[in-house]
Protein backbone atom coordinates (compact mmCIF):
# COMPACT_ATOMS: atom_id res chain seq x y z
CA UNK A 1 0.00 0.00 0.00
CA UNK A 2 2.71 2.44 0.87
CA UNK A 3 3.92 2.35 -2.72
CA UNK A 4 0.88 4.18 -3.96
CA UNK A 5 0.34 6.67 -1.22
CA UNK A 6 2.07 8.04 1.79
CA UNK A 7 0.69 9.88 4.76
CA UNK A 8 2.51 13.05 5.62
CA UNK A 9 2.39 16.47 7.14
CA UNK A 10 0.65 19.13 5.08
CA UNK A 11 3.67 21.40 4.95
CA UNK A 12 5.97 19.09 3.06
CA UNK A 13 8.51 19.94 0.35
CA UNK A 14 10.78 21.92 2.62
CA UNK A 15 13.68 22.01 0.13
CA UNK A 16 12.29 24.38 -2.47
CA UNK A 17 10.50 27.62 -1.86
CA UNK A 18 6.80 26.82 -2.11
CA UNK A 19 4.60 28.52 -4.69
CA UNK A 20 2.03 29.14 -2.00
CA UNK A 21 2.64 29.12 1.69
CA UNK A 22 -0.18 29.36 4.22
CA UNK A 23 0.91 30.13 7.74
CA UNK A 24 -1.61 29.53 10.55
CA UNK A 25 -4.47 30.92 8.50
CA UNK A 26 -7.72 31.49 10.37
CA UNK A 27 -10.85 33.09 8.96
CA UNK A 28 -13.79 34.15 11.10
CA UNK A 29 -17.12 35.34 9.76
CA UNK A 30 -19.59 37.46 11.69
CA UNK A 31 -23.04 35.92 11.44
CA UNK A 32 -26.34 36.81 13.11
CA UNK A 33 -25.76 33.79 15.40
CA UNK A 34 -22.35 35.01 16.45
CA UNK A 35 -18.88 34.50 14.97
CA UNK A 36 -18.32 31.44 12.79
CA UNK A 37 -14.85 29.96 12.42
CA UNK A 38 -14.70 28.92 8.77
CA UNK A 39 -11.00 28.05 8.80
CA UNK A 40 -8.92 27.34 11.86
CA UNK A 41 -5.15 27.45 11.86
CA UNK A 42 -4.46 26.12 8.39
CA UNK A 43 -0.82 25.68 7.52
CA UNK A 44 -0.17 24.39 4.05
CA UNK A 45 2.41 24.50 1.30
CA UNK A 46 1.74 24.18 -2.40
CA UNK A 47 4.79 23.41 -4.51
CA UNK A 48 5.46 24.89 -7.94
CA UNK A 49 3.73 22.78 -10.60
CA UNK A 50 1.87 20.70 -8.05
CA UNK A 51 -1.69 19.49 -8.50
CA UNK A 52 -3.22 19.76 -5.05
CA UNK A 53 -6.74 18.61 -4.25
CA UNK A 54 -8.69 19.85 -1.24
CA UNK A 55 -11.47 17.57 -0.08
CA UNK A 56 -14.07 18.18 2.57
CA UNK A 57 -17.79 18.15 3.30
CA UNK A 58 -19.85 21.17 2.32
CA UNK A 59 -19.37 23.91 4.86
CA UNK A 60 -15.75 23.08 5.64
CA UNK A 61 -14.49 26.36 4.24
CA UNK A 62 -13.01 25.03 1.00
CA UNK A 63 -14.26 27.96 -1.05
CA UNK A 64 -13.16 30.39 1.64
CA UNK A 65 -9.68 28.90 1.45
CA UNK A 66 -9.59 29.38 -2.32
CA UNK A 67 -10.80 32.97 -2.05
CA UNK A 68 -7.98 33.61 0.41
CA UNK A 69 -5.45 32.07 -1.96
CA UNK A 70 -6.77 34.29 -4.77
CA UNK A 71 -6.40 37.33 -2.56
CA UNK A 72 -10.12 38.06 -2.94
CA UNK A 73 -10.49 37.74 0.82
CA UNK A 74 -8.13 38.31 3.75
CA UNK A 75 -7.43 35.94 6.63
CA UNK A 76 -8.54 37.05 10.07
CA UNK A 77 -5.28 35.69 11.44
CA UNK A 78 -2.22 34.21 9.83
CA UNK A 79 -0.46 34.94 6.57
CA UNK A 80 -0.40 33.79 2.98
CA UNK A 81 2.83 33.96 1.04
CA UNK A 82 3.38 33.54 -2.66
CA UNK A 83 6.86 33.07 -4.10
CA UNK A 84 8.31 34.30 -0.83
CA UNK A 85 6.22 37.48 -0.82
CA UNK A 86 3.30 38.21 1.40
CA UNK A 87 -0.01 38.20 -0.45
CA UNK A 88 -1.86 41.46 0.08
CA UNK A 89 -4.88 42.16 -2.13
CA UNK A 90 -6.04 40.33 -5.26
CA UNK A 91 -3.31 38.29 -6.90
CA UNK A 92 -3.66 38.83 -10.63
CA UNK A 93 -1.79 35.66 -11.52
CA UNK A 94 -3.88 33.43 -9.26
CA UNK A 95 -6.83 32.74 -11.48
CA UNK A 96 -9.97 31.26 -10.04
CA UNK A 97 -12.45 28.99 -11.75
CA UNK A 98 -15.59 29.49 -9.72
CA UNK A 99 -18.12 26.78 -9.09
CA UNK A 100 -20.71 28.72 -11.10
CA UNK A 101 -17.92 29.79 -13.47
CA UNK A 102 -18.87 33.48 -13.70
CA UNK A 103 -18.57 33.56 -17.47
CA UNK A 104 -19.88 36.84 -18.85
CA UNK A 105 -23.11 36.39 -20.84
CA UNK A 106 -22.68 39.67 -22.73
CA UNK A 107 -19.45 38.51 -24.33
CA UNK A 108 -18.83 35.84 -26.94
CA UNK A 109 -16.81 32.78 -26.05
CA UNK A 110 -13.67 34.31 -27.51
CA UNK A 111 -14.24 37.67 -25.83
CA UNK A 112 -14.63 35.85 -22.51
CA UNK A 113 -11.29 34.13 -23.02
CA UNK A 114 -9.76 37.49 -23.98
CA UNK A 115 -11.09 39.25 -20.89
CA UNK A 116 -8.08 38.78 -18.61
CA UNK A 117 -5.70 39.83 -21.38
CA UNK A 118 -7.81 42.89 -22.12
CA UNK A 119 -7.62 43.90 -18.46
CA UNK A 120 -3.85 43.57 -18.73
CA UNK A 121 -3.81 45.93 -21.71
CA UNK A 122 -2.78 43.34 -24.30
CA UNK A 123 -3.41 44.68 -27.82
CA UNK A 124 -6.36 43.28 -29.71
CA UNK A 125 -4.58 41.24 -32.42
CA UNK A 126 -2.39 39.53 -29.85
CA UNK A 127 -5.15 38.76 -27.41
CA UNK A 128 -7.33 37.38 -30.18
CA UNK A 129 -4.53 35.10 -31.28
CA UNK A 130 -3.92 33.93 -27.71
CA UNK A 131 -7.62 33.38 -27.11
CA UNK A 132 -7.84 31.27 -30.26
CA UNK A 133 -4.84 29.25 -29.15
CA UNK A 134 -6.43 28.42 -25.81
CA UNK A 135 -9.80 27.70 -27.40
CA UNK A 136 -7.97 25.16 -29.56
CA UNK A 137 -6.42 23.69 -26.44
CA UNK A 138 -9.88 23.01 -25.01
CA UNK A 139 -11.32 22.00 -28.40
CA UNK A 140 -13.74 24.89 -28.74
CA UNK A 141 -12.40 26.60 -31.84
CA UNK A 142 -15.69 26.33 -33.65
CA UNK A 143 -17.57 28.12 -30.91
CA UNK A 144 -15.56 31.30 -30.56
CA UNK A 145 -18.48 33.43 -31.74
CA UNK A 146 -21.14 31.73 -29.63
CA UNK A 147 -22.63 33.28 -26.54
CA UNK A 148 -22.37 31.50 -23.21
CA UNK A 149 -26.02 30.50 -22.93
CA UNK A 150 -25.72 28.62 -26.21
CA UNK A 151 -23.19 26.16 -24.76
CA UNK A 152 -23.61 22.92 -22.84
CA UNK A 153 -22.39 22.56 -19.25
CA UNK A 154 -19.17 20.81 -20.25
CA UNK A 155 -18.42 23.40 -22.92
CA UNK A 156 -18.90 26.20 -20.42
CA UNK A 157 -16.37 24.51 -18.14
CA UNK A 158 -13.87 24.43 -20.96
CA UNK A 159 -14.45 28.11 -21.75
CA UNK A 160 -13.79 28.90 -18.09
CA UNK A 161 -10.63 26.82 -18.23
CA UNK A 162 -9.47 28.57 -21.41
CA UNK A 163 -10.29 31.99 -19.92
CA UNK A 164 -8.20 31.18 -16.87
CA UNK A 165 -5.29 29.69 -18.80
CA UNK A 166 -5.16 32.52 -21.35
CA UNK A 167 -3.80 34.88 -18.70
CA UNK A 168 -0.92 32.47 -18.14
CA UNK A 169 -1.58 32.27 -14.40
CA UNK A 170 0.99 31.15 -11.86
CA UNK A 171 -1.68 29.31 -9.91
CA UNK A 172 -5.02 27.93 -11.06
CA UNK A 173 -7.66 27.78 -8.33
CA UNK A 174 -10.61 25.55 -9.14
CA UNK A 175 -13.69 25.49 -6.93
CA UNK A 176 -15.68 22.28 -7.52
CA UNK A 177 -15.71 23.07 -11.21
CA UNK A 178 -17.12 19.75 -12.36
CA UNK A 179 -19.68 19.18 -9.60
CA UNK A 180 -22.74 19.92 -11.72
CA UNK A 181 -21.76 17.79 -14.73
CA UNK A 182 -22.86 14.34 -15.79
CA UNK A 183 -20.40 11.47 -15.32
CA UNK A 184 -19.29 11.14 -18.95
CA UNK A 185 -18.64 14.84 -19.37
CA UNK A 186 -16.76 14.93 -16.11
CA UNK A 187 -14.67 11.96 -17.18
CA UNK A 188 -13.67 13.70 -20.38
CA UNK A 189 -12.87 16.93 -18.59
CA UNK A 190 -10.67 15.03 -16.11
CA UNK A 191 -8.68 13.72 -19.06
CA UNK A 192 -8.45 17.14 -20.63
CA UNK A 193 -7.44 18.82 -17.40
CA UNK A 194 -4.78 16.18 -16.75
CA UNK A 195 -3.46 16.59 -20.29
CA UNK A 196 -3.42 20.39 -20.06
CA UNK A 197 -1.75 20.26 -16.67
CA UNK A 198 0.92 17.89 -18.04
CA UNK A 199 1.51 20.26 -20.96
CA UNK A 200 1.52 23.52 -19.04
CA UNK A 201 2.74 22.42 -15.59
CA UNK A 202 0.60 24.99 -13.86
CA UNK A 203 0.24 24.90 -10.11
CA UNK A 204 -3.33 23.83 -9.51
CA UNK A 205 -5.39 23.88 -6.32
CA UNK A 206 -8.55 21.91 -6.98
CA UNK A 207 -11.43 21.85 -4.50
CA UNK A 208 -13.93 19.01 -4.56
CA UNK A 209 -16.15 17.01 -2.26
CA UNK A 210 -15.58 13.93 -4.39
CA UNK A 211 -12.76 11.78 -3.03
CA UNK A 212 -12.35 9.73 -6.18
CA UNK A 213 -12.08 12.86 -8.26
CA UNK A 214 -9.41 14.15 -5.89
CA UNK A 215 -7.38 10.94 -6.11
CA UNK A 216 -7.93 10.82 -9.88
CA UNK A 217 -6.40 14.26 -10.34
CA UNK A 218 -4.19 15.22 -7.43
CA UNK A 219 -0.50 14.78 -6.68
CA UNK A 220 -1.56 15.37 -3.15
CA UNK A 221 -4.92 15.27 -1.41
CA UNK A 222 -5.68 17.30 1.69
CA UNK A 223 -8.78 16.45 3.70
CA UNK A 224 -10.41 19.25 5.67
CA UNK A 225 -12.61 18.86 8.75
CA UNK A 226 -16.09 20.26 9.08
CA UNK A 227 -16.57 23.55 10.90
CA UNK A 228 -14.10 24.80 11.76
CA UNK A 229 -12.10 23.78 8.71
CA UNK A 230 -8.85 22.24 9.84
CA UNK A 231 -6.47 19.95 8.03
CA UNK A 232 -7.40 16.38 8.94
CA UNK A 233 -5.07 14.43 6.69
CA UNK A 234 -2.78 15.03 3.78
CA UNK A 235 -1.47 12.31 1.56
CA UNK A 236 0.58 12.02 -1.60
CA UNK A 237 -0.94 10.03 -4.42
CA UNK A 238 1.81 8.14 -6.19
CA UNK A 239 -0.29 6.50 -8.88
CA UNK A 240 1.14 6.81 -12.39
CA UNK A 241 -0.49 9.12 -14.92
CA UNK A 242 -2.60 9.20 -16.96
CA UNK A 243 -4.96 7.85 -14.34
CA UNK A 244 -8.36 6.28 -14.73
CA UNK A 245 -11.31 6.46 -12.38
CA UNK A 246 -11.89 2.69 -12.67
CA UNK A 247 -8.34 1.83 -11.66
CA UNK A 248 -8.60 -0.50 -8.60
CA UNK A 249 -5.51 1.08 -7.03
CA UNK A 250 -7.18 4.44 -7.27
CA UNK A 251 -10.29 3.01 -5.67
CA UNK A 252 -8.16 1.67 -2.83
CA UNK A 253 -6.63 5.05 -2.05
CA UNK A 254 -10.01 6.71 -2.36
CA UNK A 255 -11.60 4.22 0.03
CA UNK A 256 -9.12 5.00 2.76
CA UNK A 257 -9.69 8.72 2.32
CA UNK A 258 -13.42 8.25 2.22
CA UNK A 259 -13.37 6.68 5.69
CA UNK A 260 -11.75 9.84 6.98
CA UNK A 261 -14.10 12.07 5.09
CA UNK A 262 -17.20 10.18 6.21
CA UNK A 263 -16.69 11.19 9.83
CA UNK A 264 -16.72 14.80 8.73
CA UNK A 265 -19.70 14.33 6.44
CA UNK A 266 -21.75 12.81 9.24
CA UNK A 267 -20.76 15.70 11.51
CA UNK A 268 -21.85 18.15 8.85
CA UNK A 269 -25.12 16.28 8.33
CA UNK A 270 -25.85 16.31 12.05
CA UNK A 271 -25.16 20.02 12.15
CA UNK A 272 -27.50 20.62 9.26
CA UNK A 273 -30.35 18.70 10.85
CA UNK A 274 -29.81 20.56 14.07
CA UNK A 275 -29.94 23.84 12.17
CA UNK A 276 -33.20 22.74 10.69
CA UNK A 277 -34.73 21.82 14.03
CA UNK A 278 -33.68 25.01 15.74
CA UNK A 279 -34.52 27.16 12.69
Amino acid sequence: MSTIWARERAESHPKEQPKLHLKHVTRLFQTPNGPLTALDDISLNVAEGEFLCLVGPSGCGKSTLLNLMAGLDRPTEGEIWKDGERLDGPATDHIMIFQELGLFPWLTVRENVEFGLRMRGVAKPERQARAREYLRLVHLSHFERSYIHQLSGGMKQRVALARALATDPAVLLMDEPFAALDAQTRDRLHEELERIWTETRKTIVFVTHNVREAVRLGDRVVVLTFRPGRIKTALTVKLPRPRHLEDPHLALVARDLLVQLKEEISRSAKEEYRDEESG
Binding site: I95, F98, G102, F104, F115
Partner: peptide, 14 residues
Protein backbone atom coordinates in the same frame (compact mmCIF):
# COMPACT_ATOMS: atom_id res chain seq x y z
CA UNK B 1 -24.35 38.69 -9.25
CA UNK B 2 -21.41 39.08 -6.89
CA UNK B 3 -19.78 36.32 -8.87
CA UNK B 4 -19.31 38.55 -11.94
CA UNK B 5 -17.63 41.18 -9.83
CA UNK B 6 -15.34 38.60 -8.24
CA UNK B 7 -14.53 36.99 -11.60
CA UNK B 8 -13.80 40.41 -13.08
CA UNK B 9 -11.51 41.39 -10.23
CA UNK B 10 -9.82 38.02 -10.27
CA UNK B 11 -9.09 38.42 -13.98
CA UNK B 12 -7.49 41.78 -13.34
CA UNK B 13 -10.24 44.40 -13.57
CA UNK B 14 -9.67 47.28 -11.15
Amino acid sequence: PKLYRMAGRNLGAR
